[in-house]
Design a protein around this nucleic acid. Structure first.
Lengths: 361, 361
DNA sequence: CGTTTCCATGGAATCGTTTCCACGACGCAC
DNA sequence: GTGCGTCGTGGAAACGATTCCATGGAAACG
């Protein structure tokens, strides 16, 4: 802990502190002689510059903050990984904050990050606008929203357009003969919760399926609410024959709920979940998912943030999503007989058909 | 980014910088009057003290580093979560580093953490001793090893004693009639890899089971090696009828490998994995595991680190492990007929019997 | 009323680094 | 040989907070 300072390096090298500093920070205005002497002195003393002092004098800390809503959610764990890797590649360290789905804790963490003068913040916000988030903008701290956005905050964002994947999923289930699709939704306080729900209802009506509001259960992106959702939906007098779940953690809960009730996944009930998680393919039967690239999201977020830090004003990025069909939604079940009028000939050219390919994996 | 300094707060409050500092850092030597004036001035300007400057002058940074070998490994994701929560509770932020199973990247991260003068480091080391790790000790930077240790480094550690859980697992499988148990091991370069392997071989001979070296496959704690291990072991002329896998990621790979081969888990082959992961219980059949508490490990690591920071020299902590039996190892299969001499009456009093209870979950 | 004690206060030094500025030496062109 | 530009160098001023030390006033005590 009794750290070595540049002063001692300079003394050992027989040069001034200024020269030592120049050599160590790669300033070209140095003679080969002093370069060599300082380099060897620094190596001998195993000198590590004090990042605090450096950050205090210079403008940069070379640190960025990543604030996610729940690290235990595999989606955000993956995001943390890619962000950290991408940042590291550019010489930045990542301060990881975990809001733990609490707006309070998020605000406290934002304050800490501001105090530490991180060069920028990547934020997957929980809840709506808050004082601390407004403070970010007011202080012109480079900020990029990831996965979720907040209305009225004009910072760049990188999000997934769930529409394409959800449309594919609904059409896929409709093609399998399902007319009553249950939906376990994310919280309407989050942008992804709202957007995915809106896409679902739109696609359901477009495909002439039941838009019974009882078929929608509002969860909170945590496992427990997935389980609760399954029970609520299957307790209906006219239960759904297929299920769309808005995120991976709720899908985990939903699967547990099905186990509890002895309902066989892919046989008694078809299921598709948002978010691709590696091991979803290992379930028996394998789980159909709406996939989107976490890795690309993380890399893009870092890219955008670096641009903002450099004074740019990059445009927001929207990444695609797509359906991956596996056994959990294969049309092997015996869905309710199509008493509803046979679905009209599937409109092949969907309104804004982008990413309409269905990958089978 | 044009940050507000304590100077401006002092000016607005009509006091000196010294007084402002005292008020803001809770020094009691202040009058109620100036306390009020400074507080309101700070609030009005939305002042956030510069943590760099504070750390430069004082001795503390109130930051700690957590360096794990792979954040995508659910075990370490959980660990990151609990460490971050525990640290946050004590007013510390966590700098998360990810070595990505690369000793090089681990060393680079350690250098960064040293440069940033974190108050302490929690390290799940990858590989053996390195220059950067020695530098930690040489600089007397408070360090705690977690999950894995490094021989010859006398820093406190918090690890799991896998022996009890492995003994329970081997006895459980033996009781199910299995005599040839395959083992997919972690790398022998890591302490957990060595310890668990040693425990396994010991228990196997103690129970009079086959100690055929061909039954052991050495993986690297990544998913792919689990799959490779399954293929290698099942390709043997005398394949095992049960499998013990040394960590969760390799277990995931192993399950995928079983899928590939059409081998039914829990029916054609019994399996137990080290590390409890929430969704292992959701698999069909549910996976038997050797469980140990990540949460307790994370909290303990932070506790120990804080003690070291405060000048203490706490003893290392070893946490227990225990078997949780689920369907994947239930004795429903038809293991190879016990051609080997019937297992000797199970020695009920195992040599160092601690945590011998078997929990069914 | 005088002296001592206490306490709030402000000035200034300090942490370790970067960077501005001035200075001396050298080389080249006239 | 003088002048001018270039280049490496060192001294010193910043950066923003904490903290030591001295000071002044008020309170307390004789």
């Amino acid at each position: 802990m009794n750290a070595i300072t540049i002063r001692e390096v300079a003394a050992l090298a027989g040069v001034s502190v200024a020269t030592a500093s120049r050599v160590l920070s790669g300033n070209p205005a140095t003679s080969p002689t002093s370069r060599a002497r300082v380099a060897s002195a620094a190596a001998e003393l195993d000198f590590r510059p004090n990042a605090q002092a450096r950050a205090l004098r210079g403008a940069r800390t070379n640190a960025l903050g990543l604030l996610v809503s729940d690290v235990r959610n595999p989606f955000f764990a993956d995001l943390a990984h890619t962000v950290e890797q991408a940042a590291n590649l550019h010489g930045f360290v990542t301060l990881l904050g975990n809001a733990n789905e609490s707006a309070d804790q998020q605000d406290r963490y934002l304050d800490t990050l501001i105090s530490r003068r991180v060069d920028g913040i990547i934020l997957a916000p929980v809840g709506a606008e808050s004082d601390s988030i407004r403070a970010l903008i007011a202080r012109e701290i480079p900020t990029v929203f990831v996965d979720r956005t907040i209305a009225g905050m004009d910072a760049p964002s990188v999000t997934t357009d769930g529409t394409a994947g959800i449309r594919q999923a609904v059409e896929h289930l409709a093609a399998g003969g399902h007319t009553r699709i249950g939906y376990i939704s994310g919280p309407q306080a989050s942008s992804t919760g709202r957007d995915r729900f809106a896409a679902f209802t739109r696609c359901v009506t477009e495909n002439g399926l039941s838009a019974d509001p009882a078929l929608v259960y509002f969860g909170d992106y945590q496992a427990a609410s997935g389980s609760a959702g399954v029970h609520a939906l299957l307790d209906l007098s006219e239960p759904p024959t297929a299920l769309l779940v808005a995120d991976s953690l709720m899908a985990v809960g939903a699967i547990a709920g099905l186990h509890d009730r002895g309902v066989r996944l892919g046989v008694d009930l078809a299921m598709v979940a948002f978010d691709d998680v590696e091991w979803f393919a290992l379930l028996n039967p394998a789980l159909s998912v709406i996939s989107h690239s976490v890795a690309e999201m993380g890399r893009t977020a870092v890219d955008l943030l670096l641009q903002v830090i450099d004074g740019g004003t990059p445009a927001s990025v929207v990444l695609p999503s797509e359906l991956i069909v596996r056994a959990s939604s294969a049309p092997t079940g015996t869905p309710a007989p199509p008493s509803s009028p046979p679905t009209p000939p599937t409109p092949f050219a969907a309104p804004t058909a982008s990413h309409n390919s269905v990958r089978t994996h």
